[in-house]
Amino acid sequence: MALLELKKVKKVYRQGKIEVPALRGIDLTVEQGEFTTIFGPSGSGKTTLLNMIGCLDTPTEGEIKLNGNKVSKLSQKQLAMVRRYNIGFIFQAYNLIPVLTAYENVEFAIRLIDHSKELQIKEKVLKILEEVGLKGLENRRPNELSGGEQQRVAVARALVKEPKIVLADEPTANLDSKTAADVVKIMIKMNKELGTTFIFSTHDPAVMKYANRYINLKDGMISTDERRG
């Protein structure tokens, strides 16, 4: 059974009386452990597609199944629960909570699903922070961290709850090429070690080279879908 299945997914936005189609019928299957990049020009529907996969929005038409469960017709509350337990997000602008330390930002995500004792939570958070290379920086707030470090915190936050799938919308767009490569290498490491499925959108060819599947989106449709290595 595929981890993710999209069948004829369409999304139309309404701007007043005008209908703007963002996705025109996407058929896509993603298996567990794939490291997939979605690329394409601006306005091709990358973010919309990630939003559909991430249960942040529902399609106008079509069907989405996550782990065999249909998620395309769920209520907002049900979608929130699907996101909470199954999906990790990494954003271009990191979106860390500024008043929380690196440790607390990661802890915030796991507290939503894990009601274990303090000590067990602490162990998990410190372990993931160490794995993304932030050992010793746990008590720093976002404004005391570099862009690369902040994005590592965001990666740790997405991974700490061990989601089935991690979605990253242009996660390296705000980073220099070396830092971007470092962050992607961490994602690859996690993909290999934990078997977490990654889907990310990017424009950056230097980052794209690390993926093993490439989906090219054009005008809301998949124009090419290639697997490598």
Binding site: Q76, A80, M81, V82, R83, R84, I87, F89, F91, A109
Partner: peptide, 14 residues
């Protein structure tokens, strides 16, 4: 607003 969006993405209910 963005932070609210992020929290929502993390799975916080309304």
């Amino acid at each position: 607003t963005r932070e609210i969006g992020m929290m929502s993405a993390l799975g916080l209910k309304s």
